[in-house]
Write a protein that binds this DNA or RNA. Structure first.
Lengths: 228, 228
DNA sequence: ATGGAAAAATTCATCGAATGCAAGATTGAT
DNA sequence: ATCAATCTTGCATTCGATGAATTTTTCCAT
């Protein structure tokens, strides 16, 4: 008996005509939506209009996106890079929780900004249309269980006391801070640069409370709070 | 010339019939909405139904709330306690940023859980209806400018380097972590107890990265990272 | 290539949230 | 009692979103 290929091989790089058309259409819809919204504002642009402009029925639009806002943001449901996820769950790569969280977030941002132009356009629209910002948080919510699984995987290997919820929010904090900083820089360079800055700021906020007056490393307050 | 009372005295405790009715109706709508949603689920309950059950027209419902979800959560647009806000802006009360943030969040939670029963019901519904969770984040968004103003006020008095965005997200992190922990405890005791725990966890996450091997307060790594 | 299975697009109907407007009712001050 | 301000309501409408049934397109085996 020859090894049968699993009935539904989920080949990610399926380059059948079907898949190609689907991707092209999706991209077209995102571009169309972004252009229209940039010109006329989020509320003035109806799904019907986007569809018409892209030569697609309204109903089909909703086969591609869960909502109008999703289309405008061009949400791609890319999970976390499996390699990075694996490393994190195994207690790596550095063994230091915050440091490894940073790596995780870097991987997230990597995928998030996969298509730089589209991402920048989406972020610009987010500045103008605060309602879209909220979708950004929803996006995090979708990955919540994925993140929780990672935290639960790592806990036995490299124990830590923080709740999943706190770590998830911390991830979100880093993502948003990095992105905001990137925005402010006029989208110069890479997002990652701003991520390090975000982590540094976080450390600084906490550290300045632990060791206040710049007293230095031997301040007892640190130990007190740390081991309290 | 006698001192004329300002035309529109914004008496917060206006006990005219009008104001009393308004509050009663609002409360009734929230209670009705929560009861119905608890029984039949968020999507099965229409605004029309809530209105009918409360003896109020659909149109009036939307005079009280911006959305169905707002009614279910019973959102009260209570800002931050002015006294606490003032203290924070002035660089207090402790002068330590994180500590003072905790005070700020405590004040927020205080108002958030002003009506304990209603709040608990809202949180229970949030557990069952993830969509409501997102409103929770929108709520934060509404207060964002308020928070940013506080940060900007404090900055010159007691300088710090963190971005407004990061601090805002940190506030949100503490709020959510505290509330989640409160939920897990079966809503025992006060929310504030869990807030301290949330802060402790945050410190621990960062501190364990700064001073890894549990070496203690005199570890040089702390200073290195801190002053880098 | 060709016929048939699978997938995707379209049409059509429908629901419900949300808003604007104008007319009617209630409350508050004089 | 009166008049203005405020609140409620009914009505019409727009638009986002979903479900079901039908037609079109792509794919694959022969």
């Amino acid at each position: 008996m020859t090894l049968p290929v699993p009935a539904d091989a989920p080949d990610p790089d399926d380059v059948g005509l079907r898949e190609r058309k689907k991707r092209a259409r999706r991209a077209l819809l995102v571009d169309t939506a972004q252009r229209l919204v940039a010109d006329h504002g989020l509320d003035a642009v109806t799904v019907e209009l986007i569809g018409a402009e892209a030569g697609v029925s309204t109903r089909t639009f909703f086969n591609y996106f869960e909502s109008k806002d999703d289309a405008v943001l061009g949400v791609e449901d890319s999970g976390i890079d499996p390699a990075v996820a694996q490393a994190f769950s195994a207690g790596g790569p550095s063994g230091l929780l915050l440091t490894d969280l940073q790596v995780l977030v870097a991987a997230l941002l990597q995928r998030f900004a996969a298509n730089r132009e589209r991402t920048v356009r989406a972020l610009r629209l987010m500045e103008a249309e605060p309602r879209l910002l909220q979708r950004h948080l929803v996006w995090m919510d979708r990955h919540k269980s994925e993140l929780h699984a990672l935290f639960d995987g790592r806990r036995p290997v490299a124990p830590f006391s923080a709740d999943n919820e706190l770590l998830t929010m911390l991830v979100l904090t880093l993502v948003r801070t990095a992105i905001t900083a990137w925005e402010r820089s006029g989208y110069h360079g890479d997002v990652d640069a701003h991520l390090s800055e975000a982590v540094a700021q976080l450390i600084h906020v906490v550290a300045s409370d632990i060791a206040p007056s710049g007293v230095g490393p031997s301040d007892a307050t640190s130990a007190e709070r740390f081991h309290a």
